[in-house]
Design a protein around this nucleic acid. Sequence first.
DNA 1: ACAAATTTGTGATATAGATCATAGTTCTGC
DNA 2: GCAGAACTATGATCTATATCACAAATTTGT
Lengths: 229, 229
Amino acid sequence: MDLPGQVNCETCRIRSCAVEVLDQQELDILKTNCAGAVYARNERIFQQGSLTSNIAYVKTGLVKIHKNGPSKDQILKLVKPPRFIGIPTVLGDKINNYSATALLPTTVCFIVTSTFKTLIMRNGRFANEVINSICQDELTFYDRSINQMQKQIHGRLADALLFLADEIFEADSFDLPLSQSDLGDYIHATRESVTRTLGRLKADGLIQVKGKNIKLIEKDMLRKISKLG
Amino acid sequence: MDLPGQVNCETCRIRSCAVEVLDQQELDILKTNCAGAVYARNERIFQQGSLTSNIAYVKTGLVKIHKNGPSKDQILKLVKPPRFIGIPTVLGDKINNYSATALLPTTVCFIVTSTFKTLIMRNGRFANEVINSICQDELTFYDRSINQMQKQIHGRLADALLFLADEIFEADSFDLPLSQSDLGDYIHATRESVTRTLGRLKADGLIQVKGKNIKLIEKDMLRKISKLG
DNA sequence: ACAAATTTGTGATATAGATCATAGTTCTGC
DNA sequence: GCAGAACTATGATCTATATCACAAATTTGT
């Protein structure tokens, strides 16, 4: 973890919708209670179970949110910047309920929780934007959750590939930022099943695989697979 | 749906933490933009896909939140009052993303969305309480989601029974408020598997079943099953 | 540049739980 | 109080995907 340390929220070009509505005085409060950090691929940003007094704002890169389950670690979601993560720690206990790990080189700003709370209390529009953002996450997670439960592995993998292409990379060809084992934790499948299913999609000509690089060839067909489960 | 209509938030004895922090003027705003309703068992409170301009506050009873998936309806969560439901509709589209149905006779207050937003904007403590509540839900749902994915059916059913006993009814003997088919939608299993698994728990003497009534006999054993999946 | 570690590929086998089929039971409205 | 609907019970079979076991390929540290 590299520390650029002091940041300037006034001139920051990757500000969240929420921060956009702050006034000069509030920006000053934020600026003096905010520190930047840079993470390399596979570096842990925060760890489930550890104490924290910060909320993280992912500015660039890609982050996985993951959590220990009864039998293994599971990737709850992939977070594309810009996005706050760890807001639930505004709650009483201040213990991280899940872990966050960089999947690509990632820049993060940490905001002191009490400052975040102060801004919510002071500025209703800020609070409103924060609520919107959390609610958006909630709905997305409900959808993902139902898809994970009801689709079988082909559909889940197609979902993941389409998500990476459309939402994360905005390109039909990209380098997989996760190992196949991670991908398994994300779509709830074993590593072997991921390998096999990827192989199947490749054999059927729906995707091209060259090392880490994946190219979606037949997106319509992938969408159909995603729909039918 | 029966309509007691006009309610009085000032004297309401089932107020949320959030409403507790409102001042007199704000309570007046709330009161004039709030209507009560009573629902019978299995009555729909709101329907996925329908337009809405209200947020619901469940005062008494029990509610299931459910949503259409690719292959079937799924119960996302059971909501024990007092609790807001449908806050995500504060977002732009104003279309319900999921359905809510009463499982027991249930009383609900509807708050006009714009009023809710006004209160968030005006009163930082209100906003803060709302955020706390949403975050709490989020964390609970993450846990449930991981448990659903990683445990097998005995563990999931044990979870559900312990949840009903400990969280909902606060008693080891209770009448199941869901059919076995619903219970299947809740723990992601078929109705047949629920029947069989309940039968197994009964045969093993961990629970007693008399019609709709369930009595947990060996809670420690159930907890062990829940843990081991 | 090389050894060690991690990641990927693939077959053989096992299994939890779905699906299908058929009945018995308990509600519910008229 | 009866008929039709909804719910519960249980057996037989099927299947998607996990597990296990190994091998090959790729990445990483020194």
